[in-house]
Nucleic acid binder design. Structure first.
Lengths: 151, 151
DNA sequence: TTTTAATACATGTATATACATACATTTGTT
DNA sequence: AACAAATGTATGTATATACATGTATTAAAA
């Protein structure tokens, strides 16, 4: 499926413009497909993202700001995403001892279990979806980071 | 800014995994930057997208379904996005004569004017942002479409 | 023709998000 | 030490979104 047929248009100013639409559209595809899987585990993309971040640093706990700065989509409502995860007992949150303004968060065993289970299913999906070899992916990464240089 | 430093991690399963995160993060960057501009014109990304689609087919009018199928992010609430645009007199909507279930939508002169003004500013922003030449962009497009082949 | 299913769109409701603001705590300045 | 500024987090509110359902119209089948 080319971007032309996906958006039913040939009206691109140039290749760079087309690339930006290609990226936006592909991101939407990735998110839609992921959400369909994550829904079965009662997770949103953002919740999944926070769990991954916390597992990445486990057993070291992270404060809200630190989590926010590592998220793919930096959102102002990280506290509320964590709220949901704490409610589901997937994350443990306590007050920090070094800085009383901070709360400090760790992924729970249940959180790790849920994360591993959902990740396994997601990775199978990615493998089927992304018909890209490692070399091509490397080129793509280089180009997309070059593109983002101005940001 | 590499994706490693943006997300503060080196923990990618492989280049393909890294590419998917790169795409999600870049899409978020593009959307954030665009929204900042569009806000000055009282438009959301989705409203802007609908206006572009309508201008693309102008003076031919389009029904809601047709607009939805051309959007970058296919959302279920196209009617409500159009509602907002009609309210702002940027779009004219009438009942279809061929199929009474349909509504038929056209961009107004005010809509075209607002679209042109905001597009002009956006394009300057893109030019500064995207440090990518046409050849590189072409390669990027080919790769990203190859990646999306499974979808 | 009558019934049934499918389609295009609208709307109700719950949830999520963005933005501004509030509050407690820490840091820096004098 | 006293004060002002900055920081980390939480929360209130308005808006936007997703999902299910409702309604009118068309198309298809019996």
């Amino acid at each position: 499926m080319t971007i032309e047929s996906a958006l039913k248009t040939n009206n691109f100013k140039n290749e760079v413009h087309k690339a930006s639409l290609n990226i936006l559209y592909t991101a939407w595809c990735i998110k839609s497909e992921s959400n369909a899987v994550l829904k079965r585990y009662g997770l949103t993309q953002e919740q999944y993202n926070v769990l991954r971040i916390l597992k990445g640093s486990h057993p070291t706990s992270l404060c809200v700001k630190e989590i926010g700065s590592r998220m793919i989509e930096r959102s102002s409502n990280v506290p509320r995403i964590i709220d949901k995860l704490v409610l589901k007992k997937l994350v443990k949150r306590t007050g920090s001892v070094v800085d009383k303004r901070e709360t400090v968060n760790t992924i729970s065993d249940a959180g790790i279990a849920l994360l591993d289970a959902s990740t396994k299913v997601l990775e199978v999906k990615w493998k089927n979806l992304f018909a890209l070899n490692e070399g091509d992916a490397k080129t793509l990464n280089a180009l997309i980071e070059k593109m983002r240089n101005g940001l």
